[in-house]
Amino acid sequence: MKAFTRSGVVLTAAVLSLSLAACSASNEEPPAGSSESAASTSEAMTELAGNLQGAGASSQESAMDAWRAGFQSANPDVTVGYDPVGSGGGIEQFLAGAVPFAGSDGLLAEEEYTAAIERCDGDGGALHLPMYISPVAVIFNLEGVGSLNLDSETIAKIFNGEITKWDDDAIASQNEGVELPSTNITVVFRSDSSGTSENFTDYLEQTSGGAWPYEATKEFSTEASQSVGADGTSAVVDTVTSTDGAIGYADASRAGDLGTVAIKVGEEYVAFSPEAAANIIAASPLSDTANGENDLAYAIDRTTTDSTAYPLTLVSYHIVCAQYDDETERALVTSFEKYVASEEGQAASAEAAGSAPLPADLSAQITAILDEIAAA
């Protein structure tokens, strides 16, 4: 099948046109490499038809809206849906076969990799394709204060309930000249299984010098007596917005008018930005649990002292099968994902969500991987 998918765009276009929309009344194939061949391929790609549903990370919601609109505009007979139920819920639906791809801010666990082998109808199992790079913002609601400087030890102690008031010396000493009230701190966290929580707690675990006593996890826990759980990114942002003295964490694209934290990196305090988020990805290796060379699952190194990087960054993936048991489903998934990874798709998400566009070489690598995805 790999030999088939690599043999040329003409055969691929022919399969798509026969199985999805029958692009031409003629049974003759144009010669490979001809202008007629290229035109037929373009026509076949616009004749995709069907319903493609995904589920997962709510961090991707704004970007996904832009991707859906762009892809459906080019393919009017395709409907793309996405349920921003959270990374854990998306993975659960994917492994159950309810959706053909999942969005996730975290990586599959070992047992989930194993479950994906059966779900994906072949030994190839599941693959992570990084599609959305975005900083995670520490957001807060404190009247008259728009930004604060905090190191990771202080952030950890706030979120675990050891620092309970905004005028605590640990906060004030890093923010000279800022008038801090004695307001109680309310910790707002994700109550659902969340890849954003996993990235946030991974940052605290790696950088706080032991002040965060838990391992990185999608299921957030805290000892803070004044804390509120919220289901999904929107609920976290809404709860922080409506609660004086609240602090939380969310994809930076959703921070809006809330106060945000510049986190300490080396000797500097670094505010979030797409450029700084992309820099931390460039310095990180692939995870040693990755499922072969086509599985682009990153192990983010958040311990950098390079102040051009923002270590509290999430890489949000689309998790797909290395093989599908239906050609139409394979065509819909791979065509959509190629659009998402393309320069056009990445520009759409950058405009809609403030994400960092994928590097060109990474985009090309993803496209090559998608070309190898087979139908049983």
Results as ranks from 00 to 15, higher is better:
T207K: 10
G146L: 05
I163V: 08
S173E: 15
G177S: 04
A137V: 07
F189D: 03
I163H: 05
G146R: 03
R119P: 04
S225C: 01
R190D: 08
R119C: 02
G106T: 05
I117G: 07
V138F: 11
G177Y: 07
S147R: 12
Q226H: 08
S208M: 11
A109H: 10
L180D: 04
E205D: 15
A98L: 12
L127E: 03
K157T: 08
E205K: 14
S221L: 10
D167K: 01
Q226Y: 06
F189N: 03
G177I: 02
A126D: 06
Q226C: 00
G97M: 06
F140D: 11
N175R: 02
E111V: 01
N160P: 03
N141I: 00
G177V: 09
S147I: 07
E198D: 15
E223A: 15
G161V: 00
F220T: 01
G124T: 08
E176D: 10
F140M: 07
I155H: 09
G106A: 13
L204S: 09
F140W: 03
F140N: 10
G161Y: 00
H128I: 12
A156T: 03
E176T: 13
S193G: 09
G124S: 13
A116E: 03
S152T: 12
I155L: 15
F101T: 02
G124A: 13
S193M: 05
I171Q: 06
D169K: 07
E223F: 11
L150W: 04
G122L: 00
G146F: 07
L129Y: 11
G106L: 12
L204E: 13
S221V: 10
E179T: 14
L148S: 06
V136N: 11
K165D: 15
G125H: 08
I171N: 08
E176L: 09
I163Q: 12
K218N: 13
I171Y: 04
N199H: 10
F101S: 01
Q226S: 13
L129D: 04
D168I: 05
V188C: 07
E219F: 12
A216L: 07
P130A: 06
K165W: 12
R190F: 13
A109E: 05
L129R: 11
R119T: 15
A216V: 09
V228I: 15
E111A: 08
S227V: 00
F220N: 01
K165A: 15
K157Q: 15
V136C: 08
G146Q: 14
S208I: 08
E219N: 12
C120W: 01
E162N: 12
E223P: 05
F220L: 05
G177K: 09
A224L: 01
A126P: 01
E118L: 02
G106W: 14
A96E: 11
S227M: 00
I139E: 02
M131T: 14
A216R: 14
L108T: 10
F101M: 12
T207H: 09
E153N: 14
G161P: 06
N175C: 02
A98S: 14
G103D: 13
G161C: 00
D169R: 02
A116F: 00
T114E: 15
V145G: 02
I185Q: 09
A156S: 14
S197L: 11
E110Y: 12
A172V: 10
